[in-house]
Amino acid sequence: MLDLYILLIFIIVAAAIAVETKDLLSSVIALGATGLGLSLTFLVLKAPDVAITQLIVEILSLIILIRATMKEDLPFSTSGRWLVNTVITVCFIFVFIFTAVKCFKELPQFGYPTIKTSSAYLKEGLKDTGATNLVSAVILDFRAYDTLGEAAVLFTAVIGVLTILRRKGRKNEETGLDNE
């Protein structure tokens, strides 16, 4: 349990650095440290599937972000109504902490879920599907509709990115010029 708390503190510190630092590249690298801490947390909680996915996707997004922010310097504005902003922020922090303390009392104990569906999967999974990796058994057999939907989401995302970022705009039909 102690290693989990250490990892959580590490994640929070890295996230705070990622938000607060002025240099964009340092911020991206701190974000990568956050993701590494999160994947280690998944590993500590005995979810190797999620840990592998988190690590790999984190590497990919880190490469893309570094590639995208290398030569950019985005304007960062801190001037303006700082008093109002600070008061609103502090109010929201107190509201969230108050609500969280109220809600976390109602939650079941760590590792003892109230929904019992998973125990049925654990008992019947190997017999019903023949897969020894239960996560695969759930996402590809019991809940394959979700995976189909997820594949459709990714398909739509790729189409959208390729459409928005294509090299040449469609030619304007009336004038015949490039509609950049």
């Binding site: 990919l60 893309i64 590639r67 995208a68 599907t129 023949g130 897969a131 020894t132 695969s136 058994a137 590809l140 057999d141 394959a144 995976t147 594949a151 990714l154 398909f155 995302a157 790729v158 990115v161 390729l162 970022l165 294509r166 090299r167």
Partner: peptide
């Protein structure tokens, strides 16, 4: 083993790999 699951995995892997590479290409070319 596990019937159709390896085939599903191959289909998803091919799809995700090519899709993410296509997104990366689009960002780099931009």
């Amino acid at each position: 083993s596990a019937g159709i699951m390896p085939l599903y995995n191959i289909a998803i892997g091919v799809k995700v790999g090519a899709g993410l590479f296509a997104i990366f290409i689009a960002l780099i070319l931009l």
